[in-house]
């Protein structure tokens, strides 16, 4: 660390003394860091400890009176059929949901950023609405959409002579249905971040590209996307976090069914906390945490640009 820092200071610090850099850096970082350590560090360490004990809801009033069980909670996971099933479901959800939502979110942001001159705010609000609409209303409308006999989707399918399935009650179709619903629901959130990110791209880059005769596609490929890397990284990471913790959609639409085909890891954790198995649920949470870290490292590798410093 020290070697790297002094190296950096000779390279670019230009006479800014070390002490001053410490003071300035921490001066900006300290207020956040103090609050953060007070309210985050303790609970994280406590919950990590819980994951190595047999703590249950019965121990709530006397949390120190529990037994240490080592990694037993963690090894138990691999024999938990429901956990394995939910892990597979979650993996499918992440692999399909993250790219789908990011492509849609970016497309919406690009569309609203570039082409529109009139009703810009109206469109922006419209695409943002699913993010803010109450999940109760969303659930009712989506259930109506996916209704087997009278639903909108199957009525459309009937027009082209296809007999539509019972989407939410079919073990193969329930998860894909929820993935599409989640993408629909979350793309507005990403659109907001992309919209902000797009503003930071210098206009000159586009002008230069146009002078070189670049098509819109080439501009997107060689100007927008590279310049958007930090934003893409942020959105990629938080989308992965969000989808690995996929939870609300199955809760309101299918309760994890039919036959656990939409049970996610987060839902399973939620159930285990509800059952009072705090130690086991904590262990599961930290396995989920590890998978989030691994996926995020992938994102950082994939979109490394300014991250080398």
């Amino acid at each position: 660390m020290t070697a790297a820092a002094s190296d950096a200071s000779t390279r670019r610090g230009r006479g800014v003394p070390r002490l001053r850099r410490v003071l300035v850096g921490w001066g900006f970082a300290l207020p956040f860091t103090v609050l953060f350590l007070v309210f985050m560090a303790g609970p994280v360490i406590a919950s990590l400890l819980m994951s190595f004990t047999d703590i249950r809801s019965a121990d709530l009033r006397n949390p120190l009176g529990v037994n240490l069980v080592g990694i037993q909670n963690y090894s138990r996971l691999f024999h938990d059929e429901l956990f394995i099933k939910s892990a597979v479901n979650t993996a499918i959800f992440v692999l399909a949901g993250v790219p789908l939502t990011m492509v849609c979110g970016l497309a919406a942001a690009l569309g609203l950023n570039a082409g529109l001159t009139r009703f810009r705010s109206l469109f922006r609000v419209g695409y943002y609405l699913p993010v803010v609409t109450s999940i109760v209303a969303i659930a009712v409308v989506w259930r109506f959409l996916l209704q087997p006999d009278s639903g909108l989707l199957n009525s459309l399918l009937r027009l082209v002579g296809v007999h539509g399935p019972n989407w939410l009650y079919d073990t193969r179709l329930a998860l894909p249905s929820l993935i599409v619903m989640a993408a629909w629901r979350n793309l507005g959130y990403q659109m907001v971040i992309f919209l902000a990110g797009l503003q930071a791209i210098p206009q000159e880059l586009y002008e230069a590209a146009r002078i070189d005769g670049a098509t819109s596609w080439q501009q997107l490929r060689y100007v927008t996307l590279p310049a958007l890397r930090p934003t893409l990284l942020f959105v990629g990471v938080i989308a992965t976090i969000g989808y690995l913790q996929f939870f609300e959609e199955p809760l309101v639409m299918t309760q994890g069914g039919p036959l656990n085909s939409t049970l996610s890891v987060s839902y399973h954790i939620y159930n285990q906390f509800g059952f009072g198995n705090y130690g086991y649920a904590s262990a599961m949470s930290y396995v989920l945490f590890l998978s989030i870290v691994l996926m995020s490292i992938l994102w950082f590798r994939l979109l490394r640009s300014d991250e080398g410093r």
């Binding site: 560090a41 994280v44 360490i45 990590l48 400890l49 009176g65 037994n67 240490l68 870290v293």
Partner: peptide, 28 residues
């Protein structure tokens, strides 16, 4: 990475300290 690893180490040490505790039976 170094920061995260340090955090885990702290937690593990604290966990070992906890090993002295244990259920005193019953409770409710």
């Amino acid at each position: 990475k170094s920061g995260t690893r340090r955090g885990v180490a702290v937690a593990l040490v604290a966990a070992l300290a906890l090993a002295g505790c244990g259920r005193d039976g019953g409770g409710g």
